[in-house]
Design a protein around this nucleic acid. Structure first.
Length: 645
RNA sequence: GCUGGCGUAGCUCAAUGGUAGAGCAGCUGAUUUGUAAUCAGCAGGUUGCGGGUUCGAUUCCCAUCGCCAGCUCCA
């Protein structure tokens, strides 16, 4: 059975004629009489061939789905409206009428209900409310009990809600220091923020204040306007909100960070890189099941109905934009033969994910509806190997966070039995990153993971957002059928480490925020769009500037020339406003001596004279081991368009 | 999504129930500059979009979109 359910402001229909399969109805319901309903939930129903078998269960399931929606939306009346066009495999009309009648009777026990006559041509008018829940479709099929038990995801009937699971999980909180000292803290009491266990750890204190006590500054993070002014990223008015456009400088930043995530995954961790589709079939139970845990906040994609000549969308075909990175990989591995000899296996994928975040939640580069996640998944033999992987990933991500100089704190969340067993290993990790952590100990499994941690980045207004995470997953392998063959030839589920260094956009956010914490903001040198700006004192020295640019730029250092007709002072000002780390002024002195005069924003802000070769070496040393890309903009500033005023 | 704030030139921001204004950026000309703003001129607008009240609305009202903050949310 197919259902298309619409919550409407009003709905009206009238009969326009009989079809050969029309049911007999009361003679008073003559053609042209309009039936009008206010605030209805209109359920367009198509009874299909397969619905004959276990008809009662089908009706019950359909009823459960409808009641579920009606309970949320509280319509004044539910209209069961026969609608043959949702399927191309229609049931026998007699079965259809009886099925719809039973459905109506089920609903009648809870809600006012009306059933439109079957088999008549009808004209109708509907005004859909248009809120997120106002339109939905359901496909009801019968599953035997055995099939229900084997479904990878809970079926829509008898669904245990997230609230039910979370309800009876209790949390305890500790501060665990890297010397192994553990302090139990009471997160109901704000005074713990002044506790001595947090003294000397301002970042962790800020994260606890923001995440657990919801202490907000109420200020716009300065990166929101800086990202525009610096021509990094901007809102795109012709897209949905929460989707940004990146100017060349922002694109460079984005790509450098992506290169770096990729380099770590492929060269340091030897992951296999894969690429999987962006859209998935919403009618697949494993996709829909995951969607429910994301509160169904996804983008839907409709496709043309190839059977229709009017160019309508196909009502029974719906895709979703991926809202997490696991689908494609899991789907691939479900069909992959894995032996214990292959493990551990590591996979890397970088891809955009889309989540329809509520409008009030969006914020600059911190929270978007479309964002780019590099994901690493490790598939492991057993808990021990899983833990080794976990540690390797943790260490890698800790190195990365250090590499950008951003401020962050560590939060672990762990199920009690695992904490007792693995506490020492966590201390080892904290010792590695030389940071204490907030530990949440859960009384029992709340999610699929037994253990996870987050690196929470701290912005310049004491807000925080999650960056890297690693999750030790002890359940999903069974759920998704990700098995390997053991030494004795049996099937066993993998232990999975899900991990991500964090959305690229968030790294950009925190890097801009970190810069703005300083009196003289500047990006890490390897990320600066322009690393060296050459300013000729007058047009006469443009040739000297070009020659110098070729020498420095030839060493893979992003160099450009401000050849515009401004005074020297003004060009210096523009370069400083752009956060250019090194400014080389060239005039007669430089042309004659070959020594460079450098204005330095990057380190101590002192001007210095330096030999060309030494200068190049200094920059190369400073950016060693980090990705390099050219800035794709004209070298001459006089040739550059102005993207933002 | 809810509550509040904001939306005027490319940017930052004025003003007003009665012809919408400045600085910067842009363009033209002059200037050829030594470490954070050279001078002059020109051009730039359906005051977010849509309604209403009014002789007249950018201003008042309603609705809507967007941005920001708070709430909520963040498997």
């Amino acid at each position: 059975m197919q259902l298309l359910i619409i919550h409407a402001d009003d709905f009206s229909y009238s009969l326009t004629g009989k079809t050969p399969v029309a049911e007999e109805i009361d003679k008073s319901a003559v053609t042209d009489t309009v039936s009008f309903f206010e605030e209805p939930l209109v359920v367009f129903c198509t009874v299909e061939k397969g619905d004959a078998k276990n008809n009662e269960d089908i009706v019950k399931q359909a009823f459960t789905e409808i009641k579920d929606i009606a309970d949320k939306l509280k319509p004044r009346i539910i209209i069961v409206y026969p609608y043959a066009h949702l399927s191309n495999s229609l049931a026998d009309p007699r079965l259809a009428v009886s099925t719809l009648e039973s459905l109506k009777n089920e609903i009648a026990a809870f809600y006012p209900v009306y059933r439109a006559p079957f088999g008549w041509y009808k004209s109708f008018k509907i005004s859909c409310k248009g809120h997120p829940l106002s339109e939905s479709s359901r496909h009801i099929t019968y599953l035997s009990e055995e099939e229900q038990a084997n479904m990878p995801v809970k079926t829509s009937v008898n669904r245990k809600t997230r609230e039910d699971i979370v309800k009876d999980v209790e949390s305890e909180f500790f501060i665990l220091n890297f010397d192994g000292k553990e302090t139990k803290i009471d997160l109901k009491n704000e005074s713990i923020l002044e506790d001595k266990s947090l003294q000397g750890f301002p970042s962790l204190r800020k994260v606890i204040a923001y995440e657990e006590f919801k202490i907000k500054e109420g200020e716009t993070p300065p990166s929101v306007s800086a990202m525009r002014r610096l021509e990094i990223a901007d809102h795109e008015e012709n897209s949905d909100s929460g989707h940004l456009r990146f100017y060349p400088k922002g694109t460079l930043l984005f790509k450098l960070l992506s290169d770096w995530a990729e380099d770590i995954a492929l060269n340091r961790l030897n992951c296999m890189e894969i690429e999987t589709p962006l859209i998935y079939n919403w009618n697949k139970p494993e996709i829909k099941g995951q969607g429910e845990s994301f509160h169904e906040r996804h983008y839907s994609i409709l496709v043309p109905d190839e059977k229709s000549e009017t160019g309508r969308f196909a009502p029974s075909k719906e895709f979703v934009l991926r809202f997490a990175g696991d689908f494609g990989l899991f789907s691939m591995l479900k069909d992959t033969k894995m032996s214990y000899k292959h493990l551990p296996l590591r996979f890397y994928e970088i891809s955009k994910s889309f989540r329809y975040e509520k409008s009030g939640e969006l914020a600059g580069l911190r929270r978007l509806r479309g964002f780019t996640m590099p994901d690493i998944h490790s598939f492991c033999l057993n808990l021990e190997e899983g833990f080794n992987e976990y540690q390797a990933l943790y260490r890698t991500y800790a190195d990365l966070a250090e590499g950008t100089g951003i401020e962050y704190a560590v939060v672990f969340r762990i199920v009690k039995e695992y904490y007792e067993k693995y506490k020492d290993k966590i201390v080892e990790l904290l010792k590695y990153s030389k940071k204490p952590a907030l530990i949440e100990v859960l009384s029992k499994m709340k999610h699929y993971w037994a253990l996870k941690h987050e690196f929470q980045g701290v912005d310049s207004v004491n807000g925080s957002c999650q960056l890297s995470t690693v999750q030790l997953d002890v359940e999903d392998a069974k759920r998704y059928g990700l098995n390997f063959t053991t030494e004795t030839g049996e099937k066993a589920g993998c232990i999975i480490c899900h991990s991500s260094v964090g959305a690229i956009e968030r790294w950009m956010y925190l890097i801009i925020e970190e810069a703005l914490k300083k009196d003289i903001p500047v990006f890490p040198l390897w990320l600066s769009p322009t690393q060296v700006r050459i300013i000729p004192v007058s047009e006469k020295f443009n040739d000297v500037a070009v020659k110098l640019k070729e020498e420095i730029g030839g060493s893979d250092i992003r160099t450009d020339i401000d050849d515009r007709d401004f005074s020297l002072g003004k060009k210096i000002m523009f370069a400083e406003e752009e956060w250019v780390p090194y400014i080389a002024v060239v005039g007669r002195k430089e042309a004659e001596s070959g020594v460079l005069s450098i204005r330095n924003r990057y380190k101590d802000r002192k001007n210095f004279n330096i030999d060309k070769a030494d200068f190049i070496k200094e920059i190369k040393d400073e950016t060693k081991g980090m990705p390099y890309r050219k800035l794709i903009l004209p070298d001459m500033l006089s040739k550059r368009p102005i993207f933002v005023g």
